[in-house]
Computed example of a mutant assay.
Amino acid sequence: MAVFTAVTLDDLTQWMEQFPLGQAVALQGIASGIENSNFFLTTERGEYVLTVFENLDFDQLPFYVHLMRHLAERGIPVPAPVANAAGDLVVALHGKPAAIVSKLEGSSQMDPQPVHCAAMGAMLARMHLAALDFPLHQPNLRGLDWWQATMPQVLPYLSPGNAELLRSEVAFQAAFAAGETYPQLQRGPVHADLFRNNVMFVGERLTGCFDFYFAGVDAWLFDLAVTVNDWCIDLASGALDTARVDALLDAYRAVRPFTGAEEASWQPMLRAAALRFWLSRLYDFYVPRAAEMLTPHDPTHFERILRDRIATPAPRLAHQE
């Protein structure tokens, strides 16, 4: 959520007339994140978030915004997209796709405890089940195909040791995806980026999750691994914290029990989730785009996590028949 496209209140004077929100009275750029231009938008009717999409086009965006609406209609706490007078959820602003969504209550819990991880696990399982009947389909655009295409762009910048780590892990994941177990994994729409800064709390109550613009159809276990790799770790070392892992997995399992194929795939999927964000951070660090308020994330954080997931046996998912 950086700012690549500058937007002012004057730009919104006429543009806002198509929405049932009244006039814009305040606009503030959001500095965190790295993909789109995001703003806190205050109108005569309330508080919202305005997103101008920098990479996704008008043909790709229906999957994301309609998934959010689908989940919201089924009681999952996510931002609800606001339609304009013509019923469109995505409209042009400065020649780029843009959308307005409701602003969630609360703030991100950047030091999650087991109680927060349990709330996260339960909501993630409910989200997966709620999206099962979502009619649109789009693959995870940051999956194996993207890893294989992006790796050559960052290899020239890496030390020999890190280059070998990247090559070997992409090869490992390609072999895992081609094996017998991977096709047996439960699949459906996933968020694919459920870091702690994309979830809101009021005290210990989870009030919602947002930033669905990496969503796609993938293994539910990948979504869970991405979440565990951020919520349940020691930030300094990247090692998993047992109490938080247990709280998140127990709460998820209480809503949707795991399968045998998922238990067998847990360690490879934790590695896949670490690889995905190490590679994307390497790309953003070494092949950056110009943007206001943009600070690329440190790639070494997910290098540490990936090395730990390779070296350390994964906690069991406690498969139940």
Rank of each mutant, 00 (worst) to 15 (best):
P139V: 07
A215N: 02
G75L: 11
R187D: 02
Q153K: 13
N55S: 15
M123P: 00
V287C: 15
I30L: 15
L12F: 11
P62C: 11
L104H: 02
R126Y: 07
E263Y: 11
F172G: 01
D241I: 06
T51F: 03
L124H: 04
Q113H: 14
E263M: 12
P112T: 08
P315T: 08
Y157K: 07
D223R: 04
R167S: 06
L194T: 01
N55Y: 15
Q60E: 15
A225R: 00
Q113Y: 14
H66E: 13
L206N: 00
S107L: 08
I233A: 03
T295R: 11
L158Q: 02
A130S: 14
I34E: 13
F195C: 00
E169R: 05
M269I: 11
M68N: 05
P257T: 06
F58E: 14
C117A: 15
P152I: 08
Q153P: 01
A31Y: 15
A171K: 06
A243T: 06
V101P: 01
M123G: 01
L129E: 12
S237A: 11
I76P: 00
F19S: 05
Q14N: 14
L89Q: 07
M269Y: 07
Y157M: 12
P183L: 09
L185Y: 13
E321R: 13
G75S: 11
V190P: 00
S265W: 07
V3C: 09
L306E: 01
L158C: 02
L306M: 12
S32L: 15
H297E: 02
A239H: 11
A243M: 06
A119T: 04
V101K: 02
L294H: 08
A192K: 00
A192H: 02
E180A: 15
E35I: 12
F53G: 00
Q267N: 10
A311L: 13
A130I: 12
V52D: 00
A178F: 11
D246T: 11
T312R: 13
E292I: 14
F201G: 02
A118P: 02
G208F: 01
L61R: 09
